[in-house]
Amino acid sequence: MFEARLIQGSVLKKMIDAIKDIVTDINLDCSSTGISVQAMDSGHVCLVLIELGSDGFEPYRCDRNITLGLGLKALSVVVRCANNDDSITIKAQEGTDNINFVFESPNGEKTSQFEIKLMDIDSEHLGIPDTEYDSVVKMPSHEFQRICRDMSQLGDSIVVACTKDGIQFSASGDMGSGKINLRQSSLVDKEEDQINIELNDPVHLTFALRYLNYFTKATPLSPTVTLSLKAESPLCVTYPIGDFGSMKFFLAPKIDD
């Protein structure tokens, strides 16, 4: 038996909105420690990794490791039927080919039940190596979203450069070019407004803006985002989910031949 109740059901809605343009089907890998999802886009350019610890759910019960394959279209349709303040309970019995969703309003007056057929998803599971990054930059998530949106008006690619002076985003195209510099903040009122730059080595990488703009659909999940960069390596964009999980996007760089 698998059962997990998320008090803030809106978190699930936001997670699905954040990935539905990148992947069509996902496997929920459920174990006693929590739920994880790994999925790649069809072009094998980016990967989504969701990790949710069991402590984010009340109750959480997973008697045996179970993989639940779901089509995002059906999942998206179902979760849209939940109100933002509803709790969402996910239930699956061993040996059945359905997953159940129960939505409960805060006062308990309204409950809704939905069932989705499980799918057998044959997905390639990648081993993500532990990486020591050249630079790790934490910034407000709306700022990152704005930069990606603005830069995509100029070109298809964005160059991200970290030096001791800060982080620079630049793009160019037929129309012209643009550069945005961010420096480490000194004094800010709210921690979530802070720009924090950890630099081990200067790094300079190019990425496709199309994917970054998909990743920023996760902005409603968290006020902050972390960009982890390493020369000639995939970028890791991390959105924390409360204090019990995270959504990470990995994007392969563009490299000169």
Binding site: V45, P234, A252, I255
Partner: peptide, 14 residues
């Protein structure tokens, strides 16, 4: 311009 890399060339299949 630079060419888009495949993610699987960086991450091994588990």
């Amino acid at each position: 311009g630079p060419a888009q890399r495949d993610l699987t060339s960086f991450f091994k299949t588990a």
